[in-house]
Simulated scan of single mutants.
Amino acid sequence: MPRLLLTILLAWLLPGQLWAQGAPAPLTRIAFGSCADEEKPQPIWDAVMAYRPELFLFAGDNVYGDVRNGRNVPDEDLIASLQESYLQASKLPGLMRLRTTIPTLATWDDHDYGKNDAGADFAGRHAAQRLFLQFWDVPRSDPRHTRDGVYHAQTFGPEGQRVQVILLDTRFFRSPLKPTDARNAPGKERYLPDDDPTKTMLGAEQWQWLADRLREPAELRLIVSSVQVVAEGHGWERWGNFPRERQHLYDLVRETGANGVVFISGDRHVGGLYRETNSTPYPLVEITASGLNQVFPGNREAGPNRLGAVYGAANFGTVDVDWWEGEVALSLRNEAGEVVRRTSVRLADLRTPEPAR
């Protein structure tokens, strides 16, 4: 078979897997999602596979392993429930087809951490981490086996077209949240912003690790946070519950000169697109894809920095990178794979301004 024809055939069969002169081809098609209940049908995997992603990112609540509607449930019972959920998930044909076909990376949220809205106060977190690493086939040589937390980073692609994926752990080290004083009131549904300087989202060790990763070279950085980062207008879990920590994140992007940051999140059971320019190094865009089968059709929120309406049916997110035009398209797709929300950013706009001379 002529070499050119063979190359074209391989490019169609194996998108993103070709190697040219020993260097990997750049990533151009990335999919992600969150909030997948293993006890419910998950037909959305057909649409995900039809999109033909080169990488899939699991943004948390990848199973629902906590004891639902339980009060004062012993931690050992929570871990037993989580173990059973992973077992159920391992028998889902769509999920397993994805995992055996497409490279994947994962972080967790509360329901695969083991307890609703839990943070560092969850006594079962070490056992939950062992189950997480086992389910996601993390090699024994990986540092996540010898340190606390499931945070992880990996860079793909050749110089000039590198995608750095940073998966944060917003559970293991997180301080307690401040309860609302008006439960279910708009904007104050569960929690209130807490300005306590001793509160942390990531913990000191993870913060230092993140600073080191942001100093590494990359042209596009996908920071995966299980809970929303820039989103405003609601009182559920989000980085805005610790405004000092969120500002620290923005400042860290500026101080490290980390260009190309885009936030990916889940958790909410609705999808949405967001953009923030207040106290940020450059316009920071967030895409929330939630959920793969756990949804909240009746959701209403103010969304002062949201781009358009939320999307309350089953969805997954996609990131399409046009390296040659320097543009990144962020899309929410429905169960049929159709684009239902979309925005785009130019890589040239995701750059920290040069200091004045």
Rank of each mutant, 00 (worst) to 15 (best):
Y51D: 08
Y86S: 02
S81D: 01
R357I: 09
A211L: 03
G160D: 03
L4W: 12
S225G: 13
F242H: 10
E38T: 08
L202M: 13
S85N: 01
R357K: 12
N315M: 00
E39T: 15
T170K: 06
N259R: 14
K91D: 08
S226H: 10
A80E: 13
R171D: 06
V163W: 10
M201W: 09
M96F: 00
A123R: 09
G317L: 07
E38I: 06
N299I: 01
A47R: 07
T7K: 14
H111K: 07
V165R: 12
G187L: 13
M201S: 10
G303K: 05
E276L: 13
D117E: 08
R140S: 14
T343D: 11
A348D: 13
A123G: 12
R215F: 02
F316V: 02
E335Q: 03
D212G: 12
V229P: 11
F135C: 05
G312W: 05
M96D: 01
L307H: 03
V150K: 08
P281L: 11
L18H: 00
V138F: 12
R246K: 15
G298H: 10
L57A: 05
V285H: 13
A23C: 02
T280Y: 11
A204D: 15
D267I: 04
G303N: 01
A106I: 09
W324P: 00
G337D: 05
I30N: 03
D322L: 04
